[in-house]
């Protein structure tokens, strides 16, 4: 039931996207993927933020996968109790469904939209808890973060809360980037694990065959 709705929504969204952007033409890969695809395919490989994980060790790392691999990117924050851990758990669950030779070709990156609370230490602990192969992007440069979000079509906003702290609101898509920095597909919140897994598998197989 809800699957059908998601699929219907995806189709509708796809149609709207084309209509809204006046796009058409170049209908590249996009074959048989359940997640949303965009036309033209966005290029995010030029985006570079400090990765405080074991790969970057605090140095800037471009948002593209290693050769032949895929990079799954999520914008969120570590003190988010519901949406972010659910999404990361779903991605983890999806990766577990892949055969080892495919699973080891997927790296997961989380970009914090709350660098104030998400220190480098918090980010390492948080992202490292979920994945074996990961990046933890963290910048205190708000403009750099905004540019990165813009490239992906992500967004967030921070507003003061009644309790004296602040609330973080954020877009909740999960993005897949290839080794050329192309944003190939994105999944909305609560995408079933089997569909995430299938999309990754489809892209990895295409990549192997070409």
């Amino acid at each position: 039931m809800s699957r059908t709705l998601i699929t219907a929504a995806a189709v509708l969204a796809g149609a709207l996207l084309l209509a809204g952007c006046g796009g058409g033409g170049a209908g590249q890969q996009a074959t048989g993927l359940t997640g949303f695809t965009r036309d033209p395919v966005p290029q995010v490989g030029g985006v570079s933020l400090p990765d405080v994980g074991p790969v970057g060790k605090g140095k800037s790392v471009p948002m593209r996968a290693k050769p032949g691999n895929l990079l799954v990117v999520y914008f969120g924050f570590a003190s988010c109790p519901d949406i972010c851990p659910t999404t990361l758990s779903d991605v983890r669950g999806a990766l577990k469904r892949l055969p080892v030779e495919q699973r080891t070709r997927v790296e997961v990156a989380m970009v914090t939209v709350d660098p104030k609370r998400d220190t480098a230490k918090v980010m390492r602990s948080y992202v490292g808890h979920f994945f074996e192969s990961w990046r933890a992007y963290r910048t205190t440069d708000a403009a750099a973060l905004a540019d990165a979000e813009k490239a992906f079509g992500a967004s967030h906003s921070i507003t003061p809360s009644k309790s004296g702290g602040y609330d973080v609101v954020h877009s909740a898509f999960t993005y897949v980037v290839d080794d050329q920095g192309r944003l190939l597909v994105e999944w909305p919140f609560a995408m079933p694990r089997r569909d995430i897994s299938q999309d990754l598998s489809t892209i990895l197989e295409e990549d192997t065959n070409t």
Partner: peptide, 18 residues
């Protein structure tokens, strides 16, 4: 951005409703 947001809202509204 506006288009994207509209799309997202549709997609999630459908998901949530279901």
């Amino acid at each position: 951005t506006i288009t994207r947001r509209a799309i997202t809202t549709i997609a999630i509204a459908a998901t949530t409703a279901g």
